[in-house]
Amino acid sequence: MTKLRRSEVEPHEDYGFFGPGSVVWKVWSFPTAPTVGFQRAVVVEELDPPLVAAVHQTQGIYQRPRTRYDRTLRYFAMVAFGGSREVCKAADILVKVHSKAIGHLPHGEGTYDANDPASQLWIQLTGWHSVLYAYEKYGPGKLTEQEESEYWEACALAAELQTCSPDDVPRTRDGVRAYFERMRPRLSASPIARQAMNHLLTTELVLPPTPRWARPVSKAVARAQRVATIATMPRWMREMAGIRQSRLLDVLIVPVMKVSFALAHLDARVELRLLERLSPSTVSVIAPVRLGVPPRNKEVLTPAEARARYGYAKPAEAHLEFRALQAARVFGEGGAPSDQGLVESQEILGPLA
């Protein structure tokens, strides 16, 4: 069990890329982020054919759903709250991890590459949009106009840690809506997409074993989160994916989740204990922020400043030789890509099993 006494929490090296008082810390530290917000993001993402092909090829969400959820959530939390050095290291190793997810599209012509800028932009925007949407629907409500502008500027800043260009990130809600409208004709609820979406909506898969006496409560919580996540998805998307839920449930789940999240957020230690059940490795990332543990250096950097300081390349330009070798194995030799990136990632993103 994680130690949650303030004096025992390991501080971050610095404030990372956002820091106290930022709208990022405000939105991402609310319990809607690692629950409904994150679940919505990973479910919606599967409608993108190249992305779901990569997910299907690696089989991580099926073979190790708990550790996959844990590692992915830890990375997103690191971007929001982690120290600049460790975030740069995580972003760098993630390029090597994604280099394994390449191949031919199983449905349709063409190839896929998890490092492709278009796929990375889709992940970035579905993630940040979903976390904000969940915060507004089940949390304190809508941001002010100034806060929302800051939020999307921060999203663009965080995109510098992906292989996509921050210039492609919309800076307004209307711009984000326009992006999703442009993407809509390209989305597809293929058999593997439907399989992945329904699998990722099964919250029980990412929870630890529960004592027999507590299973009814655990099942009820998991069911409530599933209902709440589906309620955030537009009707056209649900119909495309074959996901059904009544409008009545959409309405009834709102007050239940608003009260539940508000109560959980009252006590930081309770909130962190609940997070520990969902994503143990994410607790050490968020605990310093929620418990008010200052970093060793009270500074906020930009990703460019951090890369220059610590010697990392831009993600789009990182590990090009290794990525070329991976492509040669898969497309040239018809073999399997190396797991080297996954193995190396355990040091910073957590164990694979």
Rank of each mutant, 00 (worst) to 15 (best):
T2G: 03
T2P: 00
R5T: 14
E8Y: 06
V9Q: 05
E10C: 05
P11L: 11
P11C: 08
E13D: 10
D14G: 04
Y15R: 01
Y15S: 02
G16C: 15
S22W: 05
V23C: 11
W25L: 10
K26S: 05
V27F: 06
W28V: 00
S29Y: 08
F30M: 04
P31N: 10
P34M: 13
R40W: 01
A41M: 04
V42C: 03
E45Y: 00
L47C: 09
P49V: 06
L51Y: 09
L51E: 04
V52H: 00
A54M: 01
A54H: 06
Y62S: 07
R64W: 12
P65W: 01
P65L: 01
R68P: 02
D70Y: 02
R71S: 08
Y75V: 05
M78L: 15
F81D: 07
G83K: 04
S84H: 02
C88I: 07
A90Y: 03
A91T: 09
L94E: 12
V95T: 12
V95S: 00
K96E: 07
H98V: 13
K100Y: 14
P106A: 09
G110Y: 07
T111K: 09
Q120K: 08
T126Y: 00
G127L: 04
H129M: 03
H129W: 05
L132M: 15
Y133A: 15
A134Y: 00
A134C: 04
G141A: 11
T144Q: 12
Y151P: 04
L157G: 01
T163S: 14
P166I: 03
D167T: 08
D168W: 02
V169K: 03
D174R: 12
A178C: 06
F180T: 05
P185Q: 02
L187M: 14
A189I: 13
A193T: 09
R194M: 13
Q195M: 05
A196N: 05
M197I: 14
M197K: 07
L200Q: 06
T210H: 03
T210M: 11
A214R: 11
P216T: 05
A220Y: 02
V221Y: 09
R223T: 15
P234Y: 09
R238A: 10
E239Q: 15
E239K: 15
A241W: 01
G242S: 15
L249F: 11
L249W: 13
V256E: 07
V256P: 07
M257P: 08
F261P: 00
L263W: 14
L266F: 01
D267W: 09
A268C: 12
R269D: 12
E271I: 01
L272A: 05
L274Y: 14
L275S: 10
E276F: 09
E276M: 10
V283T: 10
A287Y: 03
V289K: 00
L291F: 06
G292C: 08
V293P: 00
V293D: 04
N297S: 09
E305I: 07
R309N: 11
Y310I: 04
G311F: 08
Y312K: 11
A316P: 04
H319K: 14
E321R: 12
A324W: 06
A328W: 07
R329P: 00
V330A: 07
F331Y: 14
G332P: 08
P337L: 07
G341M: 04
L342P: 00
G350P: 10
